[in-house]
Simulated assay, not measured.
Amino acid sequence: MQAHFMAIAIGFILDRAIGDPPNWPHPVRWIGTLISKCTAVLNNGRARVLKGAGMLFIVVFIVTAIVLAIVWSAYQLHIAVGIVVEAILIAIGLAQKSLRDAALDVYEPLAADDLEEARKKLSWIVGRDTDTLQEGGIARGAIETVSENTADGITSPLFWAFLFGAPGLWMYKAVNTLDSMIGYKDDRYREFGKFSARADDVLNFIPARITGFLILVFMKNEGGIPLGKRFVGWSKDARNHPSPNSGFLEAATAWQLGVTLGGKSTYRGTESVRPEIGPGLRPLQAADIKLTIVQMHMASFAFWMLMTIIGVIFYAIA
């Protein structure tokens, strides 16, 4: 158990400080290749829901089994080797630095009034159309991405790492990658990706809510709204979001910053309107992107500390 906690701590720090090296052959790409090949074979004909469930099982089993074998073999060599290998696998599965860098790539040109470059960099991290967005719309896209991915890319993987080590983290990453690739409600994936989308919702359910609560408690209250009112607004707005989990992140961010998120976006020319969330005390601006990055770091650290404390208490009692 002590080695397990040490591996998580080292992995968390490595990801924060170093992140993924450039041109790194990231395992998520390999998972994506496996998903693409399975999809090409299975996503056709009848019984697509069952075929999608079968692919979910196959991908998760393969990924988890490989990571489990690597971690087990490393610990068999020596406990220090096991800690280092597990820490590296955990670090690779987290996204603190990459998420920060992606947001800063949008913030820097936006703060310099280079809207064209800011739109271009935003298009790399969001699916919406960015060609006509102004400062507020660009900032909203970056803020929503950082907020949502604080759970998807950091605290949810950490949650499953604390429960099951690096194999648990990569089990989550496999499901999350499946959801991002086939968890759509269009004609092509509505049936085939149904189980993957539901599995991702289940795995994110607890960590998303804990993370949103930590944002409310630890992030600086930029809007000057009392905690009780922010908590009520957060709880209400989170349930208006189309995602059962992302709303708890975005609503927490909106209420802490005192701004409005959600609203109108376009995807390949098709307009999409989501309910607006947050108090809307002021318009969004470039500086809010940096505030959201700080929020991501603070919430991630608080989550890691909370899980560590709970784990130590549980270990002491057991």
Rank of each mutant, 00 (worst) to 15 (best):
I8Q: 13
F12V: 02
F12W: 12
R16V: 06
D20N: 09
P21C: 05
P21D: 09
N23M: 05
P27W: 02
V28W: 01
W30F: 09
I31D: 11
I35V: 13
I35N: 12
V41K: 13
N43R: 07
R46H: 15
A47E: 08
G52A: 09
G54T: 02
I58Y: 13
I58K: 15
A65F: 13
I70Y: 14
V71L: 10
V71G: 12
W72T: 09
S73I: 00
A74W: 02
Q76R: 14
I79V: 05
A87F: 08
I90S: 11
I90R: 08
A91L: 10
I92Q: 02
G93Q: 05
D105F: 14
A111Q: 14
D114W: 14
D114P: 06
E116L: 15
E117H: 10
E117Y: 05
R119H: 09
K121C: 05
L122H: 15
D129C: 13
D131Q: 08
D131H: 15
G141Y: 01
T145I: 08
N149T: 08
G153K: 07
I154K: 11
S156H: 03
S156P: 04
P157A: 07
A161P: 06
F162G: 00
F164V: 02
P167L: 05
G168E: 05
M171G: 14
Y172D: 01
K173T: 01
K173G: 07
K173W: 02
V175L: 03
V175H: 01
L178A: 00
D179H: 09
D179Y: 00
S180W: 02
D187M: 06
R190K: 14
E191V: 02
E191F: 11
F195Q: 09
F195H: 11
S196G: 08
S196C: 09
A199P: 04
N204Q: 06
I206N: 12
A208S: 13
A208K: 03
A208V: 06
T211L: 09
I215V: 15
V217R: 03
V217N: 03
F218E: 04
M219F: 05
N221M: 11
E222A: 14
F231Q: 07
G233W: 12
W234S: 04
W234G: 01
S235C: 05
S235Q: 11
K236D: 11
A238F: 13
R239D: 12
N245R: 03
L249V: 03
L249I: 02
A251Y: 07
A254H: 09
Q256N: 15
L261M: 11
G263N: 06
S265W: 00
G269C: 12
E271F: 03
V273A: 00
L281Y: 10
P283R: 07
Q285N: 15
K290P: 02
F301I: 15
A302D: 00
M305E: 05
M305S: 12
A316W: 08
